[in-house]
Design a protein around this nucleic acid. Structure first.
Length: 345
DNA sequence: AAGGCAGGCAACCGCACCATG
DNA sequence: GCATGGTGCGGTTGCCTGCCT
Protein backbone atom coordinates (compact mmCIF):
# COMPACT_ATOMS: atom_id res chain seq x y z
CA UNK A 1 0.00 0.00 0.00
CA UNK A 2 1.38 3.36 -1.00
CA UNK A 3 1.44 6.44 1.11
CA UNK A 4 -1.44 8.86 1.19
CA UNK A 5 -1.38 11.54 -1.51
CA UNK A 6 -0.23 14.97 -0.42
CA UNK A 7 -3.45 16.56 -1.62
CA UNK A 8 -6.90 15.76 -2.88
CA UNK A 9 -6.04 15.11 -6.48
CA UNK A 10 -9.64 15.30 -7.58
CA UNK A 11 -9.99 18.87 -6.39
CA UNK A 12 -6.76 20.41 -7.52
CA UNK A 13 -6.14 22.15 -10.78
CA UNK A 14 -3.40 20.84 -12.99
CA UNK A 15 -1.71 22.17 -16.04
CA UNK A 16 -0.34 25.59 -16.90
CA UNK A 17 -0.60 28.38 -14.38
CA UNK A 18 -2.67 31.44 -15.15
CA UNK A 19 -1.41 34.96 -14.60
CA UNK A 20 -3.92 35.34 -11.81
CA UNK A 21 -2.66 32.28 -10.00
CA UNK A 22 0.90 33.46 -10.40
CA UNK A 23 0.02 36.85 -9.00
CA UNK A 24 -1.76 35.36 -6.00
CA UNK A 25 1.08 33.03 -5.16
CA UNK A 26 3.77 35.63 -5.68
CA UNK A 27 2.03 38.27 -3.65
CA UNK A 28 1.39 35.94 -0.77
CA UNK A 29 4.88 34.54 -0.56
CA UNK A 30 6.50 37.92 -0.90
CA UNK A 31 4.44 39.19 1.98
CA UNK A 32 4.22 36.18 4.26
CA UNK A 33 6.77 33.71 3.03
CA UNK A 34 5.88 30.09 2.63
CA UNK A 35 5.20 29.66 6.31
CA UNK A 36 7.27 26.54 6.18
CA UNK A 37 4.37 24.54 4.87
CA UNK A 38 3.75 24.29 1.16
CA UNK A 39 0.90 21.84 1.60
CA UNK A 40 -1.19 24.33 3.55
CA UNK A 41 -0.22 27.33 1.45
CA UNK A 42 -2.67 26.92 -1.45
CA UNK A 43 -5.58 26.68 0.97
CA UNK A 44 -4.54 29.91 2.66
CA UNK A 45 -4.59 31.87 -0.56
CA UNK A 46 -7.50 30.12 -2.17
CA UNK A 47 -5.60 28.37 -4.90
CA UNK A 48 -6.88 25.05 -6.13
CA UNK A 49 -3.38 23.77 -6.56
CA UNK A 50 -1.30 21.07 -4.97
CA UNK A 51 1.24 22.42 -2.51
CA UNK A 52 3.99 20.75 -4.41
CA UNK A 53 2.82 22.43 -7.56
CA UNK A 54 2.93 25.81 -5.81
CA UNK A 55 6.43 25.15 -4.60
CA UNK A 56 7.57 24.18 -8.04
CA UNK A 57 5.99 27.20 -9.62
CA UNK A 58 7.61 29.50 -7.11
CA UNK A 59 11.06 27.94 -7.30
CA UNK A 60 11.17 27.56 -11.05
CA UNK A 61 9.37 30.61 -12.24
CA UNK A 62 8.15 33.19 -9.77
CA UNK A 63 11.12 33.42 -7.44
CA UNK A 64 13.08 36.67 -7.81
CA UNK A 65 16.24 36.76 -9.90
CA UNK A 66 15.33 33.74 -11.95
CA UNK A 67 16.98 33.66 -15.33
CA UNK A 68 15.38 31.87 -18.23
CA UNK A 69 17.12 30.78 -21.39
CA UNK A 70 20.15 32.50 -22.79
CA UNK A 71 22.72 30.23 -21.25
CA UNK A 72 26.19 31.61 -21.63
CA UNK A 73 29.18 29.68 -22.87
CA UNK A 74 30.63 29.70 -19.40
CA UNK A 75 27.43 28.26 -18.00
CA UNK A 76 27.51 25.58 -20.68
CA UNK A 77 30.99 24.63 -19.61
CA UNK A 78 30.09 24.51 -15.95
CA UNK A 79 27.09 22.34 -16.63
CA UNK A 80 29.11 19.96 -18.77
CA UNK A 81 31.97 19.77 -16.34
CA UNK A 82 29.71 18.98 -13.46
CA UNK A 83 27.59 16.55 -15.40
CA UNK A 84 30.66 14.62 -16.44
CA UNK A 85 31.68 14.38 -12.84
CA UNK A 86 28.54 13.97 -10.82
CA UNK A 87 25.92 13.07 -13.38
CA UNK A 88 22.38 14.29 -13.28
CA UNK A 89 22.50 15.97 -9.90
CA UNK A 90 20.72 18.96 -11.28
CA UNK A 91 20.16 20.63 -7.98
CA UNK A 92 23.87 20.59 -7.23
CA UNK A 93 24.67 21.90 -10.66
CA UNK A 94 22.01 24.57 -10.33
CA UNK A 95 23.51 25.65 -7.04
CA UNK A 96 26.60 26.71 -8.94
CA UNK A 97 24.67 28.81 -11.40
CA UNK A 98 22.96 31.69 -9.65
CA UNK A 99 19.52 32.38 -11.02
CA UNK A 100 19.24 29.03 -12.73
CA UNK A 101 16.90 26.29 -11.60
CA UNK A 102 17.52 22.60 -11.67
CA UNK A 103 14.55 22.16 -13.97
CA UNK A 104 15.89 24.73 -16.38
CA UNK A 105 19.31 23.14 -16.46
CA UNK A 106 17.84 19.69 -16.82
CA UNK A 107 15.75 20.78 -19.77
CA UNK A 108 18.63 22.66 -21.30
CA UNK A 109 20.86 19.65 -20.99
CA UNK A 110 18.35 17.21 -22.39
CA UNK A 111 17.33 19.35 -25.32
CA UNK A 112 20.52 21.12 -26.32
CA UNK A 113 23.75 20.50 -24.51
CA UNK A 114 23.59 16.73 -24.69
CA UNK A 115 23.06 16.86 -28.41
CA UNK A 116 25.80 19.39 -28.83
CA UNK A 117 28.31 17.26 -27.01
CA UNK A 118 27.36 13.77 -27.94
CA UNK A 119 26.30 14.62 -31.42
CA UNK A 120 24.07 12.62 -33.60
CA UNK A 121 24.86 9.00 -33.77
CA UNK A 122 23.08 5.93 -34.85
CA UNK A 123 21.33 4.49 -31.90
CA UNK A 124 21.44 1.02 -33.30
CA UNK A 125 25.18 1.05 -33.65
CA UNK A 126 25.57 2.34 -30.18
CA UNK A 127 23.29 -0.28 -28.74
CA UNK A 128 25.14 -2.96 -30.57
CA UNK A 129 28.46 -1.83 -29.25
CA UNK A 130 27.14 -1.57 -25.74
CA UNK A 131 25.91 -5.09 -26.10
CA UNK A 132 29.37 -6.22 -27.15
CA UNK A 133 30.93 -4.43 -24.24
CA UNK A 134 28.54 -5.94 -21.76
CA UNK A 135 28.97 -9.34 -23.29
CA UNK A 136 32.71 -9.11 -23.06
CA UNK A 137 32.58 -8.03 -19.48
CA UNK A 138 30.26 -10.87 -18.72
CA UNK A 139 32.53 -13.41 -20.31
CA UNK A 140 35.78 -12.13 -18.94
CA UNK A 141 34.64 -10.70 -15.68
CA UNK A 142 33.55 -12.20 -12.44
CA UNK A 143 30.55 -13.95 -13.81
CA UNK A 144 28.27 -11.10 -12.98
CA UNK A 145 24.80 -11.45 -14.36
CA UNK A 146 24.65 -9.87 -17.76
CA UNK A 147 21.36 -8.14 -17.25
CA UNK A 148 22.37 -6.80 -13.94
CA UNK A 149 25.45 -5.33 -15.45
CA UNK A 150 23.53 -3.76 -18.27
CA UNK A 151 21.23 -2.13 -15.80
CA UNK A 152 24.20 -0.88 -13.87
CA UNK A 153 25.19 1.18 -16.85
CA UNK A 154 22.71 3.95 -16.29
CA UNK A 155 21.96 6.34 -19.06
CA UNK A 156 23.55 9.09 -17.08
CA UNK A 157 26.71 7.11 -16.55
CA UNK A 158 26.89 6.23 -20.20
CA UNK A 159 26.53 9.81 -21.22
CA UNK A 160 29.21 10.82 -18.81
CA UNK A 161 31.52 8.16 -20.09
CA UNK A 162 30.85 9.22 -23.63
CA UNK A 163 31.74 12.77 -22.78
CA UNK A 164 34.90 11.57 -21.12
CA UNK A 165 35.82 9.69 -24.22
CA UNK A 166 35.08 12.66 -26.39
CA UNK A 167 37.38 14.79 -24.36
CA UNK A 168 40.08 12.20 -24.07
CA UNK A 169 39.94 11.35 -27.71
CA UNK A 170 40.19 14.91 -28.79
CA UNK A 171 42.94 16.05 -26.57
CA UNK A 172 44.62 12.85 -25.60
CA UNK A 173 45.05 13.75 -22.00
CA UNK A 174 44.41 11.71 -18.91
CA UNK A 175 40.84 12.09 -17.88
CA UNK A 176 41.80 12.88 -14.37
CA UNK A 177 42.51 16.26 -15.82
CA UNK A 178 38.82 16.83 -15.89
CA UNK A 179 38.45 16.22 -12.25
CA UNK A 180 35.88 18.86 -11.58
CA UNK A 181 36.65 19.72 -8.01
CA UNK A 182 39.48 21.63 -9.52
CA UNK A 183 36.91 23.42 -11.59
CA UNK A 184 34.16 24.12 -9.18
CA UNK A 185 36.02 26.61 -7.10
CA UNK A 186 37.30 28.15 -10.27
CA UNK A 187 33.82 28.81 -11.47
CA UNK A 188 32.31 29.67 -8.18
CA UNK A 189 32.14 33.27 -7.04
CA UNK A 190 34.06 32.23 -3.98
CA UNK A 191 36.15 29.89 -5.95
CA UNK A 192 39.13 31.92 -6.87
CA UNK A 193 39.90 32.54 -3.29
CA UNK A 194 39.42 28.96 -2.26
CA UNK A 195 41.32 27.69 -5.21
CA UNK A 196 44.18 29.98 -4.46
CA UNK A 197 44.05 28.74 -0.95
CA UNK A 198 44.45 25.26 -2.29
CA UNK A 199 47.45 26.25 -4.25
CA UNK A 200 49.19 28.00 -1.46
CA UNK A 201 48.05 26.53 1.79
CA UNK A 202 46.00 23.40 1.88
CA UNK A 203 45.48 23.69 5.58
CA UNK A 204 43.38 26.83 5.49
CA UNK A 205 39.70 26.13 5.87
CA UNK A 206 38.09 29.01 7.59
CA UNK A 207 35.21 29.84 5.31
CA UNK A 208 32.01 28.99 7.13
CA UNK A 209 30.21 28.40 3.88
CA UNK A 210 32.65 25.84 2.66
CA UNK A 211 32.30 22.14 2.84
CA UNK A 212 35.22 20.62 4.60
CA UNK A 213 36.38 17.10 4.12
CA UNK A 214 37.53 14.68 6.71
CA UNK A 215 41.00 16.14 6.66
CA UNK A 216 39.55 19.57 7.38
CA UNK A 217 40.47 20.68 3.94
CA UNK A 218 38.27 22.99 1.98
CA UNK A 219 37.14 21.07 -1.00
CA UNK A 220 34.09 22.90 -2.13
CA UNK A 221 32.58 26.25 -1.34
CA UNK A 222 28.85 26.13 -0.82
CA UNK A 223 26.77 28.80 -2.38
CA UNK A 224 25.11 30.67 0.46
CA UNK A 225 21.82 30.21 -1.34
CA UNK A 226 22.27 26.49 -1.55
CA UNK A 227 19.60 24.63 0.36
CA UNK A 228 20.88 22.65 3.27
CA UNK A 229 19.89 19.40 1.70
CA UNK A 230 22.03 20.16 -1.30
CA UNK A 231 24.95 20.82 0.94
CA UNK A 232 24.31 17.53 2.62
CA UNK A 233 24.16 15.78 -0.70
CA UNK A 234 27.40 17.27 -1.77
CA UNK A 235 28.95 16.27 1.49
CA UNK A 236 27.87 12.73 0.82
CA UNK A 237 29.40 12.90 -2.59
CA UNK A 238 32.62 14.09 -1.11
CA UNK A 239 32.57 11.62 1.69
CA UNK A 240 32.04 8.60 -0.50
CA UNK A 241 34.77 9.32 -2.94
CA UNK A 242 38.07 10.95 -3.51
CA UNK A 243 36.38 13.85 -5.11
CA UNK A 244 38.43 16.42 -3.32
CA UNK A 245 41.70 17.96 -4.15
CA UNK A 246 44.86 16.18 -3.54
CA UNK A 247 46.80 18.63 -1.58
CA UNK A 248 50.50 19.23 -2.05
CA UNK A 249 51.07 18.10 1.48
CA UNK A 250 49.53 14.74 0.73
CA UNK A 251 51.70 14.21 -2.27
CA UNK A 252 48.99 15.07 -4.71
CA UNK A 253 49.19 16.50 -8.15
CA UNK A 254 47.63 19.83 -7.58
CA UNK A 255 49.84 21.65 -9.99
CA UNK A 256 48.79 19.32 -12.75
CA UNK A 257 45.17 19.72 -11.83
CA UNK A 258 45.57 23.42 -11.73
CA UNK A 259 46.92 23.31 -15.25
CA UNK A 260 44.07 21.08 -16.23
CA UNK A 261 41.58 23.42 -14.68
CA UNK A 262 42.94 26.18 -16.77
CA UNK A 263 42.81 24.08 -19.88
CA UNK A 264 39.48 22.37 -19.49
CA UNK A 265 37.54 25.48 -20.24
CA UNK A 266 39.15 25.57 -23.62
CA UNK A 267 38.53 21.88 -24.12
CA UNK A 268 34.86 21.97 -23.28
CA UNK A 269 34.47 25.13 -25.21
CA UNK A 270 35.87 23.40 -28.21
CA UNK A 271 33.48 20.51 -27.86
CA UNK A 272 30.52 22.74 -27.33
CA UNK A 273 31.21 25.19 -30.07
CA UNK A 274 33.05 22.98 -32.51
CA UNK A 275 36.20 24.96 -32.58
CA UNK A 276 39.55 24.70 -30.96
CA UNK A 277 41.93 27.34 -29.88
CA UNK A 278 45.56 27.00 -30.62
CA UNK A 279 47.86 29.52 -29.19
CA UNK A 280 50.11 30.93 -31.81
CA UNK A 281 51.83 33.74 -30.14
CA UNK A 282 49.09 36.06 -29.09
CA UNK A 283 46.74 34.86 -31.74
CA UNK A 284 44.01 32.32 -31.38
CA UNK A 285 43.32 30.11 -34.29
CA UNK A 286 39.86 28.67 -34.62
CA UNK A 287 39.31 25.64 -36.73
CA UNK A 288 36.32 23.45 -37.32
CA UNK A 289 36.24 20.36 -35.17
CA UNK A 290 35.78 18.14 -38.16
CA UNK A 291 39.05 19.39 -39.60
CA UNK A 292 41.09 18.20 -36.70
CA UNK A 293 43.29 15.24 -37.40
CA UNK A 294 42.38 13.60 -34.18
CA UNK A 295 38.73 14.02 -34.98
CA UNK A 296 39.18 12.34 -38.32
CA UNK A 297 41.22 9.63 -36.73
CA UNK A 298 38.56 8.89 -34.21
CA UNK A 299 35.43 9.53 -36.15
CA UNK A 300 36.58 8.97 -39.67
CA UNK A 301 35.70 11.17 -42.54
CA UNK A 302 32.45 9.57 -43.38
CA UNK A 303 29.32 10.96 -41.94
CA UNK A 304 28.15 7.52 -41.07
CA UNK A 305 30.97 7.04 -38.64
CA UNK A 306 29.94 6.94 -35.08
CA UNK A 307 31.81 8.49 -32.28
CA UNK A 308 31.90 5.35 -30.20
CA UNK A 309 34.94 3.90 -31.76
CA UNK A 310 37.33 1.11 -31.17
CA UNK A 311 40.13 3.50 -30.52
CA UNK A 312 38.02 5.50 -28.21
CA UNK A 313 36.45 2.94 -26.01
CA UNK A 314 36.40 -0.68 -26.88
CA UNK A 315 40.08 -1.17 -27.22
CA UNK A 316 40.72 0.13 -23.80
CA UNK A 317 37.79 -1.27 -21.97
CA UNK A 318 37.68 -4.67 -23.55
CA UNK A 319 41.36 -5.31 -23.35
CA UNK A 320 41.69 -3.85 -19.92
CA UNK A 321 44.40 -1.57 -21.10
CA UNK A 322 43.40 1.76 -19.74
CA UNK A 323 46.11 4.29 -19.49
CA UNK A 324 47.59 5.11 -16.18
CA UNK A 325 45.39 8.11 -16.37
CA UNK A 326 42.40 5.99 -17.15
CA UNK A 327 39.15 7.78 -16.79
CA UNK A 328 37.24 5.01 -15.21
CA UNK A 329 39.85 4.44 -12.65
CA UNK A 330 40.63 7.97 -11.91
CA UNK A 331 37.24 9.52 -12.12
CA UNK A 332 35.95 9.69 -8.63
CA UNK A 333 32.37 9.12 -9.65
CA UNK A 334 32.63 6.60 -12.44
CA UNK A 335 33.62 3.79 -10.07
CA UNK A 336 30.12 3.99 -8.66
CA UNK A 337 29.02 2.44 -11.87
CA UNK A 338 32.00 0.57 -13.20
CA UNK A 339 34.58 -0.24 -10.62
CA UNK A 340 33.26 -3.64 -9.58
CA UNK A 341 33.31 -4.80 -13.16
CA UNK A 342 36.65 -3.38 -14.19
CA UNK A 343 38.50 -4.53 -11.15
CA UNK A 344 38.49 -8.02 -12.46
CA UNK A 345 39.64 -7.29 -15.95
C1' DA B 1 -3.22 25.66 -46.64
C1' DA B 2 -3.01 21.68 -43.92
C1' DG B 3 -1.17 17.85 -41.73
C1' DG B 4 2.83 15.59 -39.68
C1' DC B 5 6.77 15.87 -37.06
C1' DA B 6 10.32 17.24 -33.85
C1' DG B 7 12.12 20.32 -30.41
C1' DG B 8 11.57 23.00 -26.28
C1' DC B 9 9.74 23.71 -22.02
C1' DA B 10 6.51 23.77 -18.04
C1' DA B 11 4.53 20.84 -15.05
C1' DC B 12 3.53 16.39 -12.93
C1' DC B 13 4.70 12.06 -10.63
C1' DG B 14 6.75 9.02 -7.56
C1' DC B 15 10.43 8.01 -4.65
C1' DA B 16 13.82 9.11 -1.09
C1' DC B 17 15.19 11.84 2.53
C1' DC B 18 14.57 14.42 6.69
C1' DA B 19 12.36 16.29 10.77
C1' DT B 20 9.25 15.63 14.30
C1' DG B 21 6.35 13.48 17.69
C1' DG C 1 12.92 2.62 16.97
C1' DC C 2 8.86 3.65 14.41
C1' DA C 3 5.22 6.20 12.03
C1' DT C 4 3.89 10.22 9.79
C1' DG C 5 4.00 14.36 7.13
C1' DG C 6 6.63 17.77 4.53
C1' DT C 7 10.17 18.66 1.30
C1' DG C 8 13.60 17.90 -2.37
C1' DC C 9 14.88 15.73 -6.35
C1' DG C 10 15.24 13.37 -10.87
C1' DG C 11 12.69 11.24 -14.46
C1' DT C 12 8.94 11.60 -17.39
C1' DT C 13 4.93 13.45 -19.67
C1' DG C 14 2.24 16.35 -22.39
C1' DC C 15 1.32 20.71 -24.47
C1' DC C 16 2.76 24.36 -27.48
C1' DT C 17 5.21 26.11 -31.30
C1' DG C 18 7.74 26.27 -35.41
C1' DC C 19 9.40 23.92 -39.35
C1' DC C 20 8.94 20.82 -43.15
C1' DT C 21 6.56 18.41 -46.76
Amino acid sequence: MGRAPCCDKANVKKGPWSAEEDAKLKAYIEEHGTGGNWIALPHKIGLKRCGKSCRLRWLNYLRPNIKHGGFTEEEDQIICSLFISIGSRWSIIAAQLPGRTDNDIKNYWNTKLKKKLLGKRKESSRSHRLHLINQSLHEEGDGMNHDTHSEALSASALERMQLHMQLQGLWNVPLSFYNPPALWPKYHPLGDRVFQTQLTDASVATDETAIVDSAQQVVFPVNPDTPKSIGANMQRELDCSALGFQSPSSGGTLSVQACAAAGVQTDLHSLLYCKTTTSVGDEEEHQPLADLDCYKEIYGDKESSIWWTTTGFEEKSLMGSWDSGSALQSDPMIPDYYAPQYEDL
